[in-house]
Write a protein that binds this DNA or RNA. Structure first.
Lengths: 172, 172
DNA sequence: ACAAATGTGTCTAAATGTTGGACATCATGC
DNA sequence: GCATGATGTCCAACATTTAGACACATTTGT
């Protein structure tokens, strides 16, 4: 319990689900498991897990991670605010990079270290829970674009879609 | 030439630098190389490369990638708008994930595929060059926070730091 | 080196957006 | 069913944003 957070674990290996349950019980208030990602979308809609732990390989013998990547994309498209941590037995840098670029919150390899897994899941939840004031998002973006324009305010204002004077005011 | 873009390659292995030069000539207008990252910051300040290709392992015998990670952080902190692509001989998922979280644009492993490396560098440049209008950044963030509040406009407005009515207007 | 083009800082006045406050109306839970 | 909190709507004060104008740098092309 401890924190009122829940986790959805999706893996086709029952032993992994059991191990995950043991590892994560006491840390999360609710642990939901699925042995196949088919019902992932409906389950997430029902359970609203704080984080999803998704295995990448389901079809036995297929270890390209294609299927996990597809599910990652599908879930992330439907629930962009739910962090998804991927897990795979086949450590593949290419795959990990692609996963992160496709919206995965993190990527861990089997066999996992329990403490690390817990830390990663907690981090993912924390990061997803952060809320940034609108003004901060605005000024950060303004500064970024201004940088890219090497200080040229006219061009920066143009790219930002605001008037030159407004940009001038925003940076006081 | 072709595109007016430049690349800075940092690797302590001269053979790699030569190979990179050959691979990338004809694609980039200027290819600058460094055999050690010590001068990376000054070189970037002078040359303003479109992208940096940074090796992760410099101290011979040390292959943890710690040094590359430190340089990644240092460069990214000083030039947050310059995309940095990491390259390493020791495929390590953990390291790749950490690198991406520390601001790396991409992560490739040696030996590289020339076409893939070119594609990755181009992608990194393209992505870094994108400029998003301020209004779009604003509305995307508003929708995200609104989602997290499950549609509760009062709380969302509060978290965003704007008045309820303003939020109401923004989503018309 | 000059002229042309472009960017800067500053100012207006009008249009538009933001604010807290107020109010009746719905949901919700207890 | 009553209390709490959210919604949709209005208002009038206040603030921001805007296009336009202008003198003055700074950059660019030749």
């Amino acid at each position: 319990m401890v924190n009122g957070k829940s986790v959805l674990v999706i893996d086709d290996n029952p032993a992994i689900l059991t191990a995950a349950k043991i590892c994560l019980s006491g840390v999360f208030e609710r642990i939901v498991t699925l042995s196949s990602p088919e019902k992932a979308l409906v389950t997430i809609a029902q359970e609203h897990p704080s984080v999803v732990l998704l295995d990448m390989n389901f079809s036995l013998g297929v270890n390209s991670g294609q299927e996990g990547m597809m599910w990652l994309t599908a879930i992330h498209r439907r629930f962009p605010d739910t962090p998804i941590v991927l897990i795979t037995a086949y450590a593949d840098v290419r795959l990990a990079v692609r996963a992160l670029k496709n919206g995965a919150a993190d990527f861990v390899t089997k066999p996992w270290d329990n403490d690390e897994l817990i830390r990663v899941l907690k981090d993912a939840i924390d990061k997803a829970g952060e809320v940034i004031p609108l003004e901060q998002v605005e000024s950060e973006h303004v500064r970024k674009v201004l940088n890219k324009c090497e200080g040229n305010m006219k061009r920066a204002a143009d790219l930002l879609g605001i008037s030159r004077q407004t940009l001038y005011n925003k940076i006081r």
